[in-house]
Amino acid sequence: MEPSKEKSADNANLEKQKESSISFDFTDSKKEIKLESKNTNVFYGDNHVIKNVNLKIREKTVTAFIGPSGCGKSTFLRLFNRMNDYIESFHMKGEILIDKKDIYDGDIRVEDLRKNVGMVFQKPNPFPKSIYENVIYGLKIQGIKDKKILQAAVEESLISAALWDEVKDQLNKSALALSGGQQQRLCIARALAVKPTVLLMDEPASALDPIATSKIEELIHVLKNDYTIVIVTHNMQQAGRVSDKTAFFYIGELIEYENTKDVFINPKHELTERYITGRFG
């Protein structure tokens, strides 16, 4: 696709901002870089929805993507497990690297990618099957049939998702009979069962009540020790509570990306400040 003049102007603008204000790497950490986006642009048809985003995420950290509706944060999140591939007009430029490997390379199989990069969606979406069936789904489609392995995986995943104690006696009950918060933790367990290294969470608590939300947040704290977590959220407090780093997006651009406390206490960019203080959005 040939970028129009307007778009090149946009890009030029971006370059300027990047030089002036944002540093994208964090040298304070000894952790390896897990996820990286290089000059990433996304188009839906002619619509330029992600504009030249560069960012690096270190392993075993929690990164929050924030920004007003339509800023592209969910689209950007879904680049990391290629869930945008199903949108017919979707088209991207640039690179998305996981463990230094471009996941949009021809030799990458999306199915394998997604086993490594689990996802939790906005609305809890358990399959209309039993709790047990939900958790083993990922293993089942990999062809694992050994009952012992499956049973162990169910227990381990449900424990990791802090759901085991609540459901251990009713694993054959329909997942749809669980409360919304339990359903969402089940979805997390389901994602963990295939042993991913990255967890993408697209507003995982937006459909839940405050108590269920706080359980999810506690869970994120624990999971951080083993997984690289990226969470999209509308909720500023949540971003403040759960994340180490925060990235602020605005109309497809990455405006600011810093340690969370810096973003909230001392935002560098005026747009960020206006957003976190609730003056638009």
Binding site: N81, M83, K115, G138
Partner: peptide, 12 residues
């Protein structure tokens, strides 16, 4: 959402 969940798990 059901289909997304399944694709998200790495299902073909």
């Amino acid at each position: 959402t059901i289909k997304e969940a399944s694709f998200g798990m790495g299902a073909t």
